[in-house]
Design a protein around this nucleic acid. Sequence first.
DNA 1: TTTCTTCTACTGGTTTTCTGGTATTTTTTT
DNA 2: AAAAAAATACCAGAAAACCAGTAGAAGAAA
Lengths: 214, 214
Amino acid sequence: MNRKISLAIVDDHPIVVQGLQMILTNNSDINVTGCFTSGSDFIEFLKNNEVDIVLLDIMLPDSNGMDVCKEIKSVSPNTCVLALSNHSERSIVMQMLQNGASGYLLKNVSVQELTNCIYEALNGEVAFSKAVKEILARPSANDLKGIPQLTKREKEVLQLIAEGKTTALMAKHLFVSPLTIETHRRNLLQKFEVKNVASLIKIAADHGLLKSIG
Amino acid sequence: MNRKISLAIVDDHPIVVQGLQMILTNNSDINVTGCFTSGSDFIEFLKNNEVDIVLLDIMLPDSNGMDVCKEIKSVSPNTCVLALSNHSERSIVMQMLQNGASGYLLKNVSVQELTNCIYEALNGEVAFSKAVKEILARPSANDLKGIPQLTKREKEVLQLIAEGKTTALMAKHLFVSPLTIETHRRNLLQKFEVKNVASLIKIAADHGLLKSIG
DNA sequence: TTTCTTCTACTGGTTTTCTGGTATTTTTTT
DNA sequence: AAAAAAATACCAGAAAACCAGTAGAAGAAA
């Protein structure tokens, strides 16, 4: 090993910071270079110091995690960002990753998982804690309101709508009257509690109800 | 250790089957209980035999992977299904998981990863190979055909359309004329080469261009 | 400065979706 | 056999989306 890994912690909860530090000082590869309670403090630090990886709480009081992450990556593209959060909402996870994070951990992460994820991230991989993988895998299972129960025909029509077919085309395709298709569409909108196909398709896609376009 | 893990392989490529068998016989915990070249053969077997985990190729000649997976879980809910595939399309991954798969591996998986994933799956976790995590994390970055380049305003409008807002509402929201919104929508349709918002939203969602609903 | 892109806005017309009803037939379940 | 659920079909009108073409103004890039 040539040199120690330079790691920073950004979190406004002293207890979390203490805990992380304790865990990480046991690891001889890792050097905790700095702890910060705000995103902007860390960005300043980053301008004059090299940091290999940062554990970033995404719920900071002053700024939001997304923006901090984006800024970190623009100031120092090679610094890995591991998002650390209590929030297990899928959309937040996705947004962080979209903004360049190397991974996402819930704060209930185990010590073993934490160190694994750090090494994975530094190795250029994407790192998730167990609970996060669960969220990414089964968006609907973690949903408050369940997916409406659809009939076979409704699923077919839903799929065809997503493929951009108009009522007339769908009717031909399924050998029924266009008026029947309209009824199905109407029932779909009602079941999903939306008022146009745009949101219908959005929600259906989020729930993994649609086939990918061949 | 009380008893060996019972593992089955379902794949129509003899070479893959051979390879998997070779790798797995080196592992004294695992007993390869059976190899099958079709989904229905395996389902039959499953009715009379206990299988802890099955490595399932999702591109079988006779049936499709989703349905086989669903059937496996209905015949034997405790059998873990690890999907094995060359296909790295996000929506396929999601569909398999939706249908009860415990994980998804691309066939370029390493030996180490494979065994890790098997243990993770048996342990009730969701298991992904490295490449799959990459896909889940950054849907857009892994696309073959590039996503059309969107302007800032177009992205905003796209998002609002996905949220089910009408032209009039979007116009109010963005403080512009409804006619301007219409133009943006039109440009979006043109850029994505589709002719209605349904397919627009479908494709945008597939590419991870939309925020998920909280 | 000129050019390119983006954002803005318009006219006018067509197609499709959406809304609120109703209702018969077929299939499934009890 | 009766009841419930699903698939089928219709009318008529309102609202929204879609199409084709044009074009000025602001801002960024050459």
